[in-house]
Design a protein around this nucleic acid. Structure first.
Length: 144
DNA sequence: TAGGCCATCTGGTCCT
DNA sequence: AGGACCAGATGGCCTA
């Protein structure tokens, strides 16, 4: 597809990533956005079923205290004293949040065109490529 | 072995 | 009050 080839020119990739795509190009082929290709972040994520089953009610506590130190906003700083169980629950929520963030990155990865080289796009590469891709498509729409 | 990338933990702040 | 969000720290894995 000519349009895609021009989008994936070496000059474009210079804007997208620190990776030297020019050297890679002879060994790679151009791919359409990987809509149907599914990755699970290299299987790095742990099973989250235990997270869903976690009884959050056991982590409820009302342990707060106020610090004499004022926040930058001038408000009295409220320091939350957190139990280990609450901390554990917060960690689990954070893992779930990061999991959904990475799911979104995976969806974006499948939407942007890329070379079928062995290494998947990193998060920063995905964002940069998406920006360039959107700009490219916008230009096409403008000029048509 | 250094550097890049990522997962996880943690505490602070924002928001409902 | 408590969950969501964010950024810094840390450690593991991988690659050049």
């Amino acid at each position: 597809m000519d349009m895609q080839k021009s989008f994936l020119s070496p000059a474009m990739f210079d804007l997208v990533s620190d990776v030297d795509f020019i050297e890679m190009m002879p060994n790679t082929s151009v791919m359409a956005p990987m809509e149907t290709q599914s990755t699970d972040c290299n299987g790095l994520y742990q099973d989250l079923t235990s997270i869903h089953e976690f009884d959050i009610s056991t982590a409820r506590s009302n342990d707060f205290c106020t610090s004499p130190v004022s926040a930058s906003s001038g408000k009295p700083k409220r320091t939350r004293v957190i139990s280990s169980i609450q901390r554990q629950a917060a960690n689990i929520r954070e893992r779930k949040r990061m999991f959904s963030l990475n799911e979104a990155f995976d969806r974006l990865r499948r939407k942007v065109p890329s070379f079928a080289y062995e290494k998947r796009l990193s998060r920063i590469e995905t964002l940069r490529l998406a920006i360039v891709y959107i700009s490219f498509m916008t230009d096409i729409l403008k000029n048509s």
